[in-house]
Design a protein around this nucleic acid. Structure first.
Lengths: 323, 323
DNA sequence: CTGAAAGCGCTTACAG
DNA sequence: CTGAAAGCGCTTACAG
């Protein structure tokens, strides 16, 4: 068995409390005894057992990160910064891909109650019992839960207005909206609202396909969109996967982008692995948003007051999918 | 304060042990008492405190997953399946992006010793004190640590031979090798060995740029490669990011792929978000490899015997980066 | 089948 | 400054 702090104390010839104090820096300790303890630690090759101290201190120093699916550029990028930021505060992050399964979302709540994690970051758009969340240390991205749950978002409305107007400026006459609608209350819905407002103001028709779909349902939706609106010459696409699938489909149908259809994506350009093509897009400040989410969560775990809503400005990037 | 099992026992009018037994199914309990306990659980809205049972049972039910960086298609895909498989065994996965920082790798070892996790999956090619690993429940991908650490890999050698020969069949006369070399002993090195062997057998010259580089160093390496071998007409690229960067660079230099340079990538084609272009590549069975890694790790944590090395066959996929 | 007790390895008031 | 003690919330032999 590995040595315990008891062994260290005994070896050093001091009391248990003293050993603990030198190990944790709590309270001052006689230099001589301190040295003896350090010596004992070395001699016994002692490592503290965190399970014990966590139980005692009633904190796990873990947070859960719930994403729909980790192998998606936006969520992976987000996860990267969440981990980096959490690490700064001494928290580890437990990764959970919800895969849109409602049990997995509910499971996170259980993990908090079971003291497996101190709190959670929610990046999902699926449903579950809101009542269960009461008082839970949770922070969400985009999604609006209710009073107790703060969230971080981007300027969905204004950015979409700008994007749609840009398509018009570039000559588009028939602009569609393609997206997968959140099943829950979410700031993402502001995108559709913005689109509709612009269409109304400019006396244009709404050409929308925006549905609640299961994971993997993008293909069917993109097809539906192109069938419904075959003569479209511009499209605002909400979501990275959807845009990728739309582009593939358009190619297959011999619709050239941007010559035949101009495209703007909400959900930006990412790292190197993104093949470096420049999509015209609304880019979210993923890093800042991820760090903010963690900062808020940590504050919340410590019982501090936090902002209920935090909005970050996006960047409009002109690429080669518009003329 | 939330209720403890003690409260449940008191409420139900039974002993602590009895309450524990009905909650964990250990040993049989009188039906009547069982019902009373269940009733108490409901009434008090009791949730067990896992920190306590973990301490008692000396298991965290957490494993760490160490990847160089999570926002990379291969690692994200790998992580997805690791989490899914771990979940089946009741384990949670703690995500750590090493960012090539040696402290982060060493930190994982500490986490195991501190009982923050029961074991770890290593997907990194950086260095640290091998001696520290002795007896640690660790499983690696590709990397060869030594006797005690099992690993999962793919058929690097044969797949590379096949790929390079394919380039020849397609008419390439000057075939280069571009990759980032692992700093440690790894099965990935078999790729370079295979390339060299084919070159030697066919009486061709080695045109290799394969260096140990820091994260983000791909660009410089790709440039070096093209400067050194400007008249190349085929290239075997090891690693996804490197290939993406190479393709971008080639485009900038007006080298068309595949017309001027044919390209084969080791590290396959992934999900939808990969823009769907078909790169000719050697595809690793990521899902199977990830699940195998977890299966082995769980066995190892439970002290069972495990295979020391497990090789999975890759698939050769012909795309549009070769003629 | 069941209750009282010991103990997992820590930390933290509490006297001194 | 420091040691002995209590306790975090469980589980698991141990008697009965």
């Amino acid at each position: 068995m590995s040595p315990t702090i008891k062994d260290v104390a005994k070896y050093a010839g001091v009391g248990l409390g003293t050993a603990s104090r030198v190990l944790n820096g709590g309270g001052s300790v006689n230099k001589e005894k301190r040295d003896k303890v350090m010596e004992a630690v070395k001699a016994l090759n002692y490592t503290p057992n965190k399970m014990a101290s966590k139980l005692r201190k009633n904190e796990t120093r873990n947070i859960a990160l719930l994403v729909p699916i980790i192998n998606h550029p936006f969520f992976a990028e987000f996860a990267y910064y969440v981990e980096d930021e959490a690490d700064k505060f001494g928290y580890s992050v437990i990764l959970v891909s919800s895969q849109q399964r409602v049990e997995k979302e509910a499971d996170i709540i259980k993990r908090i109650r079971r003291r497996e994690v101190d709190g959670a970051v929610f990046v999902t758009h699926f449903a579950h019992l809101e009542s269960e969340l009461e008082g839970c240390p949770i922070v969400s991205l985009d999604r609006i839960f209710g009073e107790g749950i703060p969230y971080v978002t981007s300027d969905n409305y204004t950015a979409t207005v700008k994007a749609v107007k840009y398509l018009m400026e570039r000559g588009c006459k028939k602009i569609g909206y393609l997206g997968s609608k959140p099943i829950v209350k979410s700031e993402v819905s502001e995108r559709e609202r913005a689109y509709k407002d612009v269409m109304e103001q400019t006396g244009n028709q709404n050409l929308i396909v925006n549905e609640v779909i299961p994971h993997g349902g993008e293909q069917a939706l993109a097809e539906e969109f192109l069938e419904k609106f075959p003569d479209i010459d511009g499209v605002f696409v909400s979501g990275y996967s959807m845009a990728q699938i739309f582009r593939k489909l358009a190619e297959k149908k011999n619709k050239r982008i941007p010559e035949d259809i101009q495209l703007i994506l909400y959900d930006g350009v990412f790292s190197d692995w993104d093949r470096g093509e420049e999509v015209t897009c609304v880019e979210q400040p993923v890093e800042k948003m991820a760090r903010a989410v963690v900062d808020i969560l940590v504050k919340k775990i410590h019982g501090e007051d936090v902002e209920k809503r935090m909005e970050f400005p996006t960047k409009f990037i002109v690429g080669n999918t518009t003329l």
